[in-house]
């Protein structure tokens, strides 16, 4: 198979898997939340979510009408025509799965109808000395993406400043990003790097602890605290405001403390594939470890 056709196939498979089924760790977290909620309204929201996800998987249809914008994280071996293969896959998946044509011109708001445009899909490359090319897809809906926030804190504000900013962002977002959300936190780097880290963070599995003990502690502290706010599922009140908090960090300038928060709605849709040297492909909905 030509690499362009192979990549097109992989992109379609990733998009279909991501929008029609949830990773097991996210599903487990939602089930746990449904058991722990005490108010009828909150429980009803989580029951609707779980019933809807089951129906989507059964029918192989998108669980949410906002199938988001496709964001691809590519790392490993460089393969030719990667961009073109992914573009073809996005266009085909839009009519085949189907996906909602979400991509428009930012000013004229013209919708080309195939989810393609300048800079869309967004493909992020990371070269690495690997035997394979790993592609991880995130389909990001606007409800949660519109709540993204960046703060250029001063070093003296430190961890307290980070905590206060995360709390402020979640409070301000309220029910808009479709809670229970996954809070992705990017600490350090430059402004744009912090945002990228926060986006990568929400790809992390909820059933895995951060390898950095300090960050793991901060994640669980924030999760506990955010779930005491009472915002609850869909902002209608309850115990589950977040399913988890995930942190990625990078070193930064001695005079800076960039912090970015990406909120991911409960429909945390992701899928990964590894394209091996011989052209064979491995898939994982939860993500490779």
């Amino acid at each position: 198979m030509k690499t362009t056709s192979l990549l097109e196939e992989v992109a379609v498979n990733l998009l279909r898997t991501a929008v029609t089924s949830l990773p097991q760790d996210v599903l487990e977290a939602l089930r746990k939340a449904e058991k722990e909620e005490t108010s009828d309204i909150a429980r009803q929201q989580l029951r609707n979510i779980l019933a809807n996800v089951a129906a989507a998987e059964r029918l192989s249809l998108p669980m949410c009408q906002d199938t988001g914008i496709p964001i691809f994280f590519v790392k490993g071996r460089c393969i030719p025509d990667l961009d073109e293969g992914i573009r073809r896959g996005v266009s085909r998946a839009t009519s085949e799965v189907p996906l909602r044509p979400n991509v428009v011109h930012p000013l004229t708001r013209h919708n080309p109808g195939d989810n393609l445009g300048k800079g869309m899909p967004y493909v992020h490359f990371e070269l690495a000395d690997l035997e394979y090319t790993e592609i991880t897809l995130m389909t990001k809906g606007a409800g949660s993406e519109n709540m993204t926030a960046l703060a250029m804190l001063t070093p003296s504000q430190g961890v307290k400043g980070i905590k206060a900013f995360v709390l402020e962002t979640v409070l301000k977002a309220g029910g808009n990003p479709c809670p229970p959300t996954i809070v992705g936190l990017g600490i350090g780097g430059s402004a744009d790097e912090a945002l990228l880290l926060s986006k990568k963070a929400v790809l992390g599995r909820l059933d895995r602890e951060n390898k950095d003990a300090e960050l793991a502690k901060l994640e669980s502290e924030l999760r506990e605290a955010l779930n005491q706010t009472g915002i609850g599922p869909m902002g209608l009140g309850g115990r589950t405001t977040v399913l988890g908090v995930k942190i990625e960090q990078a070193h930064c300038h001695t005079a800076s403390l960039p912090v970015a928060v990406t909120l991911q709605c409960w429909a945390a849709r992701r899928a990964s594939a590894r394209i091996m040297k011989d052209g064979s492909v491995l898939y994982s909905r939860e993500g490779f470890e």
Binding site: Q44, M63, C64, N111, C178, M234, A267
Partner: peptide, 24 residues
């Protein structure tokens, strides 16, 4: 419920029409 799109579609018996499809 946000995201409950299949549940929403199941309640729709018929698409009676569409206006302003030029908006996408």
């Amino acid at each position: 419920t946000g995201g409950a799109a299949i549940q929403g579609a199941e309640g729709i018996r018929e698409v009676k029409g569409v206006e302003w499809l030029d908006l996408g």
